[in-house]
């Protein structure tokens, strides 16, 4: 009997200690976070535009955090591999990842059954870059406006070839969206890199190029390429001569966004700390200047707003997919 009481006392005592220690340690985590290097997972290879942005961000974040920020490239499966690693990482705040919208939110339904993560496993932190989609033709092309392009496709659908960067990617979705809006059939050709596609456009091997603003801004400003439309709400400063799709009567919005996310289980204090660091970096004029020089349009969306942004985009694309899947199943 006595032994039993003692046992119970021990049990209560140890439980209390556990709670106390546990509580202290969460406090401690928020207070001296971070106390070791942080990993930043990039789901694409070294040297690409996502990677370049990550490495520049890491440089500024290190100053704010006082810890090394190590960029870890985990390319594979069009980004899925990196996001699986992000979703499965320990939710202690020492693993951050870059997510690329809209690709990150379409895999859960386009790859249903085989996909290795769900959007609920990832908690978006802050969007940094929004690179609007652009439909462009070569400068010597007969098409001056979106209207004349659409008419040409209606008259002779076989004469027009449009490039995009891989099926199911943001460019492909943008072009599909436009084709649906204009009620035309486009002949798509997939190009894996923007360099090859630009060369093909300038060489006259393809009619039009669906890509992102940052990829053709130099060629547009040099007058080698003509932007027919930019798929954004308003005109973009760097290419102010290019009208939006809306101005020309096609209500199409498309962009590639890059932002940060953490595994879903990260505690609120750590999440807040990372959010404030991101805010500091994004508001740093030097960081902004470097992004501007790389033609990466900064468009910060923080915290809950970004979470909503990703989920809204997911719901919109899911509805489109349910209506008419763009990859045959």
């Amino acid at each position: 009997m006595k032994a039993n009481i003692k046992f119970k006392q021990k049990l209560i005592l140890s439980a209390m200690t556990a709670i106390l220690v546990g509580g202290l340690s969460t406090l401690a985590v928020a207070k001296d976070f971070p106390n070791k290097p942080i990993q930043l997972i990039v789901a694409f290879g070294a040297g690409g535009s996502t990677d370049t942005m990550a490495r520049i961000f890491a440089k500024y974040a290190e100053e704010e955090l006082g810890q090394r920020v190590v960029v870890v490239n985990r390319p594979g499966a069009g980004g899925e591999l990196g996001w699986v690693h992000l979703a499965n990482a320990a939710p202690d705040g020492y693993t951050l990842g870059l997510i690329n919208s809209p690709v990150v939110e379409v895999y859960p339904f386009t790859r249903e059954g085989s996909v290795g993560y769900s959007l609920d496993d990832i908690r978006p932190l802050a969007n940094i870059i929004t690179d609007p989609g652009v439909l462009a033709v070569a400068a010597n092309s007969p098409y001056q406006t979106l209207e004349s392009f659409v008419t040409a496709v209606q008259e002779n659908p076989r004469s027009v070839v449009v490039s995009h960067e891989g099926i199911g990617g943001d460019d492909h979705l943008a072009a599909l969206n436009f084709a649906k809006e204009a009620d035309i059939d486009l002949n798509f050709v997939s190009y894996s890199g923007n360099a090859e596609a630009t060369a093909a456009l300038l060489g006259g091997h393809i009619t039009a190029f669906q890509g992102n603003m940052s990829e053709v801004v130099n060629q547009i400003n040099e007058g080698k390429v003509r932007g027919l439309a930019v798929w954004s709400n308003e005109r973009i400063d760097a290419i102010s001569q290019v009208p939006t799709g809306k101005e020309q009567g096609y209500d199409v919005l498309a962009a590639a966004s890059r932002g940060f996310a953490v595994p879903a289980g990260v505690s609120q204090p750590v999440y807040d700390k990372l959010l404030s660091v991101t805010r500091e970096v994004v508001e740093n004029p030097e960081f902004l200047a470097e992004m501007a020089q790389l033609n990466m349009p900064v468009n910060p969306i923080y915290g809950q707003d970004y979470v909503d942004f990703i989920h809204e985009s997911h719901d919109r694309l899911k509805a489109l997919w349910d209506q008419e899947p763009w990859i045959e199943q």
Binding site: P75, G76, A77, G78, E80, L81, V84, T110, S114, G116, I167, G168, I327, E328
Partner: peptide
């Protein structure tokens, strides 16, 4: 086409 070819469901082989 987005078809899976000989990947055997291995995500590491998708690319």
């Amino acid at each position: 086409t987005g078809a899976q070819r000989f990947t055997f469901g291995q995500r590491e082989l998708f690319d």
